[in-house]
Write a protein that binds this DNA or RNA. Structure first.
Lengths: 343, 343
DNA sequence: TTGTAAGCGTTATCAC
DNA sequence: GTGATAACGCTTACAA
């Protein structure tokens, strides 16, 4: 490793017999600088191999041109979400700093601190499954850092949220199962009845009630996480019931896939004896056989929207915004495939 | 948004009637500072809601405590890789900055610049499929920034590489197919015969040769990317051959899955008429039916190893290291599942 | 249109 | 053990 000293605007200033301020402005194509000077500056900067030091620039403004992205873990859904954020951020010259909480509250708190220490301009977050208290995010709103929650949002926090209507999605999925003639429909929830999953459950319960189907406690089971193993355990529990369900609404495709595979292992026919609907439209849902019916979840769009809100919010940060809370809903729909087709 | 002014070490110094240098040292538990003073400092810092400004600290040292992670795109393999990096980095108090090239050379060059501008301490990179020239990485080695390539590494670049032995992996997978009695084994490559895929191909060819199987050009086809659609197109091309292959070695599970599904659509029985072996052991490989035989790819371990090397390399950065190039190989093995079991 | 100089928050180097 | 001060590289009033 060589240790070339870095070229700074000071060096350029020296070479060109100009002031550093002129270089600084020239590099940004400031309108108060002579066009020819600008050109000259840019040219020599390139020749000298100058590259701007974001640290120094940000130290003055006290913020990096960086958006912190704090997510539970990288799933297919999340990776589309990231792409959406990325594409918008990149256009505006923002870098994104991705961190995973691994669904742990403690990790989330730590990463929150770390994002703050790095002086990010804004934060886009989808909560960890474990998170109940969201005080650690006040740090951002209290200190002029834009904050947007996506998908897994807190219940009571005054800021921007980008979500789908989980209640309606749950309702629609369940209604579809009812229309297929299912009578004993089960639901698998995740974490400590986490908001998103609870809302979907509410929709599920509403649909049952509306169609005069009995609501039975044993038909709602909990998976410790949304990972395959935990989901499979939950599915198994349902399918071992004396009075087994004839349908499962799984609020995630991994869970749905685990249900199908568990059923197969137990010799239960899908969809004839057990109809299954998942959530997210991950690619596995069209690889598993029978193909998994699912509810679309516009990850990419959600990412784009969240990033756009963050950028707008950063721009307006100076004059304090009037907006206290804003919830943006994106649309979802039920994709009917083989796993729930009974008619 | 309130705009609380930030608490700095200067404020703490004022309150405690100490010098900023003492505060700075106290906060880090420097041994030259009285234990009681250290405690007092830490306590009041906490009380005042102080949080360190990494920007300022890094400006002096000219490097952020950040590792840039530049990857082609988030696949299941890559997401394990990230986890491995993350776990090691976090332990040492490093933050990771993840960026995706989306397999585009141009994007990779830009992101490289962006990482540099952000003064990361080190970079872990897996190359874009399009990348042939890697001069844009010289920036890092020339300027005292640690650099490690993982998995998709350049051919000629003096630095650390963490890889598997792609040649041997290709050889082993092909040999397995031969042992199953396959005679016309096809291979799908990706990108412009990108290094990793080329190495696997070499192994494939060596195995054929060793067993006196004919090497036919039409049995090696190219997919434009490793995404499903492109892979499926390549599979289709193979299966439409007049003299159709009886096995496909796919250097990725998505490609392997596409091969199985394409075969099914065409009414070709797997594994009876077509044996398939994939690569990576993604979770889809055990969801697809028949289950896809595959070659393990120790993503998590590779991530951990890469991060450990980076950290060591950062530590040694001051005295220039003697090491010019070091290649670390991790082990792989063939997992035989239904898609290739013929005996 | 360009120059001067202060300041961003921290740390390293001396000095005491 | 602690303090004073310069320096990191850049931006931005304010001056010219």
């Amino acid at each position: 490793m060589k240790t070339n000293k870095e070229v700074t605007i000071y060096d350029i200033a020296n070479k060109l017999n100009l002031a550093t301020s002129t270089i600084s402005r020239g590099l940004k194509g400031h309108h108060t600088i002579n066009k020819k000077t600008v050109e000259k500056i840019k040219k020599t900067a390139a020749e000298m191999g100058y590259s701007p030091n974001n640290l120094a620039a940000s130290l003055r403004g006290n913020k990096m041109k960086t958006i912190g992205v704090l997510l539970p873990m990288v799933t297919p859904f999340i990776s589309s979400l990231i792409s959406g954020i990325e594409i918008v951020a990149q256009k505006s010259g923002y870098t994104i700093l991705i961190m995973q909480s691994h669904d742990s509250y403690e990790t989330e708190v730590n990463l929150t601190q770390s994002l703050y220490d790095n002086r990010v301009s804004g934060v886009i977050c989808s909560l960890a499954l474990e998170t109940k208290n969201t005080d650690h995010f006040k740090r951002f709103t209290d200190n002029n850092t834009a904050l947007v929650f996506v998908d897994r949002v807190p219940e009571n926090f005054d800021t921007y949220n980008v979500v789908i209507d989980n209640y309606r999605a749950g309702y629609k999925a369940t209604k579809h199962l009812i229309e297929q003639g299912c009578k004993r429909i089960a639901y698998i929830t995740a974490g400590i009845d986490f908001s998103v999953y609870r809302e979907r459950k509410k929709g599920y319960l509403a649909a049952l009630q509306e169609h005069n189907l009995p609501i039975e406690d044993e038909l709602v089971v909990r998976a410790d996480s949304i990972k395959y193993q935990d989901a499979a355990r939950a599915s198994e529990k349902l399918l071992q019931l004396k009075n087994r369900p004839d349908a499962i609404f799984a609020p995630g495709d991994t869970i749905g896939v685990s249900a199908i595979q568990t059923a197969k292992k137990m010799g239960i026919k899908v969809p004839e004896e057990l109809a299954v609907v998942g959530f997210n439209d991950d690619s596995i849902s069209s690889i598993i056989e029978p193909n998994l019916s699912t509810v679309t979840h516009p990850a990419f769009e959600m990412g784009k929207t969240a990033a756009e809100i963050i950028l707008k919010s950063i721009k307006n940060a100076k004059r304090k915004s009037e907006i206290v809370k804003q919830i943006t809903y994106l649309n979802t729909e039920v994709l009917v495939r083989q796993s729930s087709k009974r008619k």
